[in-house]
Design a protein around this nucleic acid. Structure first.
Ligand SMILES: Nc1ncnc2c1ncn2[C@H]1C[C@H](O)[C@@H](COP(=O)(O)OP(=O)(O)OP(=O)(O)O)O1
Length: 754
DNA sequence: TTTAGGCATCAGGAGTACGTTGT
DNA sequence: ACAACGTACTCCTGATGCCT
């Protein structure tokens, strides 16, 4: 038996499609496991025997074989013709066959060949397998095996030692964002996992060739960078082409290939872009390598040079640029080390290859996970439909009791929606008018027979519990803990998103009834818990969807938790205790002092990425004073902030307001500062695209706000509109906190004039 | 390539009332 | 006297990013 760890899978056309499993062997060797593979689609409806006769007569098409099989569709048994084909262009062929042979439905023709291979053969990326295989030569030094028989998943959990190359690169433009048509590569710096640094600069052709040679010589399994998918790899590829050669950094010398959703695929290697990871980390508001490193608590030094100053720095302080490039490559390696386990675990859970899982949107992670289970269960994977969007009611949110409260306990249901889906067996394949589980105030019901979705959730929740347990074994602040926390959270998001997935019109298993019923039962559950809490004499201060904030009373809370467990069959727990907690009038916003002495803020401007740092700091200072010192101190601190602003003592960086461009500039209906600034930047030659953050500063002047906003890197500190920052940034968020403890806004407005 | 709904907050823009100005 | 204009106000909506 050959044992191997799956790095990546590709299908290549030889005599028909062949799956190439790029792998790491037990002895650490790099190898390729090959298996001729026949992608499959199913035909249903019509007269299946006639369809078979028709297929028999269609020998000229690339059909390898076909047979009548028993499958399931939404849980119901169904006969179908399974067609195995010799091409990786399934969709066209399937449609042709369907028409010619008079079938009604086509299933699974829209799943790409390499995905099919992974899913059908039960192969999991980023995990260990065993298979009967015979050695059959070598390609470019990689031993090749022919697999025969089924793949067995092994229990081993550890990741083999991978060769990793971290790199970063800067490009040089005379004006604005560098464009690959004109502007050369200045420098590439690469670092191996042993810490060896190689820097390439000078003649562009030489430096690119140097990098290619390094990759070929070092032969990394993983190439990791920051912003490689969207920017660096396409850029380098284009530069090489223009210089008359190709960026041959694939394992058999191929160029990077643009794959699904802007991902750059490297033959036989994993291309990992840490930017993708930064983007989905909610604590990180500004997706930069620096922010990510500091979020992880890594000790990496950066002498940062802003993108907008790079060209100038290259002229004036070249050695600093080169040094920064090295720091970045080192930092990328450090971050990779910290997060690689997380990436591989996400890949293993969802069944998506490690480099694809990071670019896949949540819905597709869920879907891929479900598809794997579906194929195991013989459940046909339906095509994506075009359901019309219909909204439905979600969770209930209580009006908070505004003000400062002492000793508040937060009671929280454990994975509420997933557990509700399991309790009431909510699934697309259990929806039935005669079902025994009838959703409150809805015409939807679900039957007893174990559903597909509850089965899928069970595994996710178990895995999450495991990750949570492990996380708690590591000290707070340690890298291990952060990574396990991230895994735990990823599993929670995938589980919750399984609920949202069924309410998503783009889902293969769209089932609005299931999603709607889940939130309806959620409302019923929290309402009954609220009632019970009141009956027990608990004082409720706030609640949102699955939580109750109550005045702490351990005895009564114990009673409530016990009741929830017995009467509702769900688990709730005290998630947190606040010594003090402050609510404004608003829902979903509060800040408190926890029992272990930490300040926690939820929803307030402090946690939002679209407020200036000065405003967020001022609000935090006020909150801290309110919780720890008193009202007077809060007012004193704000007075100090305002004074500092007036006297020009606040660094310009703290005045930047960042907002994301969420769509193309033409699509905006109303003018706004960040859109205006984006337009201005584009005119100056900078590239600003949807998904980018635009940083701006408000300057003195007349007119609308958007007329006073300029790119942050053009701001002259002496012309900043200090009044705007005082009156519209600092005061309102602070005033909302203060008014909750009875200090009228006037008190702050009085501070404006001095 | 879009998991869902619920929510606060801000600024722009349309509509309106009202006062001022010029003829 | 009356139209044209500017300003201040209200109300609604688009936009963003958060919470669960
Ligand atoms: N990202 C999300 N997508 C869809 N539904 C969500 C999401 N986050 C939360 N919900 C819904 C479903 C959850 O069960 C419910 C309560 O959320 P929350 O308390 O944050 O987590 P949880 O109850 O699932 O886990 P925990 O065990 O950490 O409390 O709100």
């Amino acid at each position: 038996m050959l044992r191997f760890w799956v790095l990546d899978v590709a299908t290549e056309m030889e005599d028909g499609p062949v799956a190439w499993i790029w792998s790491i062997g037990e002895d650490g060797s790099r190898l390729i496991v090959k298996e001729p593979f026949r992608p499959v689609f199913y035909l249903t409806g019509g007269e299946l025997e006639r369809i078979c006769t028709c297929l028999e007569a269609s020998k000229e098409l690339s059909i390898s074989s076909f047979s009548l099989v028993e499958r399931r569709l939404s849980g119901r048994s169904l006969r179908a013709v399974m067609v195995s084909v010799l091409t990786d262009e399934l969709e066209g062929l399937a449609e042709k066959v369907r028409k010619r042979c008079g079938a009604e439905g086509v299933f699974e023709a829209d799943i790409r060949a390499s995905s099919q291979f992974l899913l059908r053969r039960g192969l999991r990326p980023s995990s260990w397998h065993a298979v009967e295989a015979s050695e059959s030569g070598a390609v470019k030094g990689y031993r090749v095996y022919r697999a025969s028989g089924d793949y067995q998943r092994l229990e081993r959990v550890e990741t083999p030692r991978l060769r990793v190359l971290a790199f970063d690169s800067f490009f040089l433009a005379g004006r604005g964002t560098p464009k690959p048509e004109f502007d050369p590569v200045m420098v590439i710096t690469a670092v191996t996992e042993r810490g060896e640094v190689r820097q390439f600069s000078g003649d562009e052709k030489d430096l690119l060739r140097g990098f290619i040679d390094l990759v070929e010589g070092y032969d990394p399994d993983v190439i990791v960078g920051f912003n490689t998918n969207r920017r660096i790899l396409p850029y380098l590829t284009e530069r090489c082409r223009r210089l008359g050669f190709s960026l041959s950094i694939g394992r058999l010398g191929a160029e990077p290939r643009t794959s699904v959703y802007g991902h750059q695929s490297l033959q036989g290697r994993l291309n990992i872009d840490l930017y993708d990871l930064a983007e989905e980390t909610p604590e990180i508001k500004l997706e930069t390598l620096e922010e990510y490193s500091s979020y992880l608590g890594l000790k990496v030094e950066y002498d940062t040079i802003d993108e907008y100053d790079l060209a100038e720095a290259w002229d004036k302080e070249r050695s600093r640029v080169l040094e920064y490039s090295t720091q970045r490559a080192r930092g990328i390696m450090e971050v990779y080390r910290a997060v690689s386990d997380y990436i591989f675990s996400l890949s293993e859970i969802t069944g998506l290859p490690a480099d694809h899982v990071l670019t896949a949107a949540t819905g597709f992670r869920v879907e891929n996970y479900l598809m794997g289970l579906a194929m195991e269960a013989g459940e046909l994977v339906p095509p994506r439909g075009e359901a019309t969007y219909m909204t439905y009611a979600g969770g209930v949110v209580m009006e908070p009791r505004a003000g400062l409260h002492e000793d508040v306990a937060v009671i929280d249901f454990k994975s509420m929606y997933p557990n509700i889906m399991m309790k009431y067996n909510i699934s697309f394949d259990t929806l039935s008018v005669e079902g025994v589980h009838r959703a409150p105030n809805l015409p939807h019901a679900f039957k007893e027979e174990a559903g597909f979705i509850p089965r899928a959730l069970k595994r996710l929740l178990e895995e999450r519990e495991r990750a949570r347990g492990l996380a708690e074994m590591h000290p707070e602040g340690s890298v291990e803990r952060r990574v396990l926390e991230a895994r735990q959270r990823a599993l929670k998001v995938i589980a919750n998103a399984t609920y949202g997935y069924m309410g998503w019109t783009g889902a293969r298993w769209y089932c609005r009834e299931a999603a709607e019923a889940t939130s309806a039962w959620g409302r019923e559950t929290i309402r009954s818990a609220m009632e019970r809490a009141k009956e027990l004499g608990l004082e409720i201060i706030y609640g949102d969807t699955d939580s109750l904030f109550v005045r702490d009373d351990p005895e009564k809370i114990r009673g409530l938790l016990g009741w929830i467990n017995e009467a509702l069959g769900l688990e709730a727990r005290v998630d947190r205790r606040y010594r003090k907690i402050l609510f404004t009038e608003a829902k979903k916003r509060y800040g408190g002092l926890t029992d272990d002495g930490k300040i926690e803020t939820v929803g307030l401007e402090i946690v939002r990425g679209d407020w200036s740092a000065i405003a967020k700091e001022a609000q935090l200072a006020a909150l801290e004073a309110i919780l720890k010192e008193g009202k007077e101190e809060a007012v004193r601190r704000i007075r100090e902030t305002i004074k500092a602003l007036r006297e020009g003592r606040v660094p310009i960086k703290k005045l930047i307001i960042w907002k994301k461009l969420t769509k193309g500039l033409e699509e905006y209906e109303v003018a706004s500062p960040h859109v205006k600034v984006a337009k201005r930047m584009i005119e100056a030659g900078w590239s600003v695209k949807p998904g980018d953050l635009v940083g701006f500063i408000i300057m003195k002047g007349k007119g609308r706000l958007y007329e006073k906003a300029i790119p942050y890197f053009e701001a002259d500190p002496s012309r900043v509109d200090v009044d705007y920052y005082i009156e519209k940034q600092v005061i309102p968020p602070v005033a909302r906190l203060l008014s909750a403890i009875g200090i009228p806004e006037r008190t702050l407005m009085g501070l404006i004039s001095n």
